[in-house]
Computed example of a mutant assay.
Amino acid sequence: MRYLALHRHGGIEIGLGHLAYQVGKVRVFPLRRIVGLAWITAALQTEVVGRWAIDGPFEITVALRNTSRATLGAFAEGWAEPGQGLADFATCLDEHLLLHRETDGLPDPETFALDLGDRVEQAFGTVHRRHLARRGEHEGGFDPRFQVF
């Protein structure tokens, strides 16, 4: 299941079924895809607010189901993926992850998305910022090469 909804009140909702994938017996959530979709959604929300003059406050909620003992993957260039090498990967301790933020004004899409990436990393027990490339064409920035749907 995949959908994008634009509500009459101006809110945007995006839903993706089967976001996570398996590496061996470990459930893996694609960090770069989560950050990229958040960026796209925030940019779309910015356009909606500008077009229909919607006033704040704004609420941003990101929910991931079945995160207990899951890890992150699908990183930007230069980061080792789960199952590659001998590195142990941190896992989420929470059964489900719910990140929530309220703002008076609409946040900048890039700032929001990169902050969300940091918060997701923290929820999975790391602070590496693996949604930012360590090398290559996008080194130091967000690597936009990800599958949208």
Rank of each mutant, 00 (worst) to 15 (best):
D115L: 12
W52S: 06
L116K: 01
R2P: 03
F89T: 09
D115K: 13
G50V: 07
T46K: 15
G73T: 07
D108M: 04
G136D: 14
V62W: 12
G125R: 09
T103W: 05
T111G: 00
V49Q: 07
V48P: 13
W39M: 13
A87N: 04
F89A: 03
R8G: 01
T103M: 14
E102A: 14
V35L: 05
R145Y: 08
Q122C: 02
R51L: 12
H7Y: 08
G78A: 04
Y3M: 10
V49W: 00
L132S: 06
I34W: 05
L99G: 09
G117T: 06
L72E: 08
G73L: 06
L64K: 10
G11F: 05
T41S: 12
L72C: 14
W39F: 14
L16M: 13
R119D: 02
L98W: 06
A113V: 14
E102K: 14
V26Y: 00
N66V: 01
H128Q: 12
G36K: 13
F146G: 05
F75N: 09
T126Q: 15
L44Q: 07
D55V: 14
C92L: 07
T46W: 06
G73R: 01
L97Q: 00
E59C: 11
D143H: 00
T111A: 12
A123F: 03
V62K: 09
V62L: 15
G140T: 09
E121K: 05
I12T: 12
E81Y: 10
G17D: 11
F149E: 10
G83N: 08
D143F: 03
V48S: 06
L114V: 03
P107R: 07
I12R: 07
Q45Y: 06
Y3K: 10
G15P: 00
Q22N: 05
Q122Y: 00
A90I: 01
L31S: 12
D94P: 00
A87V: 13
K25C: 01
T61D: 12
N66M: 03
W79L: 08
I34F: 07
G24I: 02
A43T: 09
D104T: 10
D143Y: 02
F149C: 11
G83I: 06
T91H: 14
P109Q: 11
E95I: 07
V28W: 01
E110F: 00
G140Q: 11
F149V: 10
F142V: 10
M1Q: 05
L44K: 09
G125T: 01
R130M: 08
Q122A: 13
H18W: 08
L86I: 07
G125F: 03
G78W: 11
K25Q: 08
H9R: 00
R2I: 09
A76N: 02
R32D: 08
E47G: 12
F89Q: 08
A53T: 07
A76C: 01
D94F: 03
P30K: 02
F112K: 00
P30E: 00
L64M: 10
T61V: 15
R145A: 07
G117R: 03
D118W: 03
H96P: 09
A70E: 10
L132G: 05
T41E: 06
T126Y: 00
A90S: 13
L44Y: 12
V148I: 15
A76I: 11
P107V: 13
T126N: 10
T46C: 01
F75G: 02
L16Y: 09
